[in-house]
Amino acid sequence: MAERYLALLDRILTPILFVLAIIFLIVGHNEPGGGFIAGLVVATAFLMQILARGDDFVRKLIGVYLQPTMGVGLVIAIFSAVLSLPEGAFLLGTWWKISLPGAGVLEIGSPTLFDIGVFLVVSAFVTSYLLELSRPARGNRR
């Protein structure tokens, strides 16, 4: 019974959570938020799905991507650290200003990229643990 209400809630909340995560990720450098928090929000969204639709559903949906996502996140973070090597420094913040006509100046820096890497690692890490722990135990355990 409860699952039916959860499924309804899930329909409404999951998209909101994903959008929220992206907002946290984008504004994170200036407002509350950031890659770590955004990653946790995504994990919460998947937790919602696990509760509403069962862990098998989510596992089929994203299970195989989780570990590659962690790897990709780590690679992105390391890549952002290497960007400043021409200046003779590792992990030095490097910023580029892109002026968008009519919309002001967009500042993109290696920390943004680094944050995206953190986001991917954290979201995939927490989600993979959620999935593993919510897998039904073998029948005959206590």
């Binding site: 450098h29 200036n30 950031g34 890659g35 913040g93 910023w95 920390p111 680094f114 954290v122």
Partner: peptide, 30 residues
């Protein structure tokens, strides 16, 4: 450092080396 949120700037810029270590540990732990 082009940021307004000091916590985030510390995480991804000032102390980014720590964070890099942490997420590496996370991947290994996972």
């Amino acid at each position: 450092a082009h940021g307004g949120n000091i916590v985030n700037v510390i995480l991804v810029d000032f102390r980014a080396m720590d964070t890099l270590g942490e997420i590496s540990v996370m991947v290994v732990a996972a």
